[in-house]
Design a protein around this nucleic acid. Sequence first.
DNA 1: GGAATTTAATGCGAAATGGTACAAAAAAGT
DNA 2: ACTTTTTTGTACCATTTCGCATTAAATTCC
Lengths: 218, 218
Amino acid sequence: MVQKSNKPPSAAKMDAPAAPKRRGRPRAYEPDVALGRALDLFRRDGFSATSLDDLSAATGMNRPSLYGAFGDKRELYIKSYQRYRDDARTAMVDIFRSEAPLRERLKRIYAIALDIYTEGESPRGCFTVMTAASEAVSDPAIRGMVLEGFVELDKAFATCFGIAKERGELPASTDATVLAHLASATIHTVAIRARAQVPRKELEAIVKGALDVICGAK
Amino acid sequence: MVQKSNKPPSAAKMDAPAAPKRRGRPRAYEPDVALGRALDLFRRDGFSATSLDDLSAATGMNRPSLYGAFGDKRELYIKSYQRYRDDARTAMVDIFRSEAPLRERLKRIYAIALDIYTEGESPRGCFTVMTAASEAVSDPAIRGMVLEGFVELDKAFATCFGIAKERGELPASTDATVLAHLASATIHTVAIRARAQVPRKELEAIVKGALDVICGAK
DNA sequence: GGAATTTAATGCGAAATGGTACAAAAAAGT
DNA sequence: ACTTTTTTGTACCATTTCGCATTAAATTCC
């Protein structure tokens, strides 16, 4: 029941608040790394195929601690999904805002997406797609998060293309929303294919083809 | 435990082989409609959230009968998936082969896809996407089927675009494979979004935009 | 009508599941 | 030293899960 911290907490607070001197017995786990482990499991097996025993083993926390720290299985799933989204967002937001030319920005976005989708050996893929496909979508709160994820990505791409239009990188006649949907579709198709373990080379080829159509053949 | 046959078996043998006079007690279920019900359940809840009790209730067959007819849960899932694919294929194959102009053919293909993805009220979506996202992809046989589904769709689109090129509907410089991947990506993105209950109108708008890019704005 | 055969129906059982009660442990406050 | 507070660890409970063994029913063949 001990947590080996090989993977650093992605949202590690660099400014440790100087040990707030909590009152009772100290925690034997670090919430950040525990949540990361839970996320890995949920991502591999989905919501209902992941048992609390599995989660307990993976996080190094026993069941009651898990419960106390994150709530029940559903809440833990939601928190895992939020964490996943936060990580993905922080990995991409700088690139979306960068000054680089359009094609370069898009290339970097897709490179990061492929990193996320293909890391590790067992089926990974995209948690949003996993969640959408799960029975958990019948939960309105979870479905809301998924929808939010879709529009967030669509918007990011849309503003990206809007800026490119202003810069003259795209003809003035182009519809930024349409291109954004195509760009999201490309994200989605590689996400699903990655889940089925299509090799990264093929995914990169699909991305390249999409970029040729979107930005104009290089 | 009785099967109400409101939904006709999609693969109904029109030529009933004149009652082959089976030997023992007659079946109380019709395998085709039972498989259809199982398919509906798996599609709604995924593999592991669907219990044999659920399946038994939905099919009107008790557990041992289910077992005898289709094998264990995994086999039933696989057969459901095969059935889904067969239905989808037969719904689309004629359109892929039709003589209609490119854009018309594509419009019909996507219309059928949206029919499949949005029918019913509870989350439906695409079984291939569901399966890919499920923990079942770690099963090599199932993963194989999913991959097969991807290439089948890619190929169908690719030959579609190849023919369009020969007909002069597309510039000779277009890469049929690249467009095929884009067309598949559009299928995938609407499949996922449909699962999250994005209204059909929005899905149709996404499809229209993609068609404008693929075939040239109308 | 009776044997053979195929299916239905009941229900059992071992394991797993999500969740919790409760006592022991480890720290800080007094 | 002793109380208070927080967390851990064990064990448990009720329910669900998958799979099967067994018996009862319905039909054909002889």
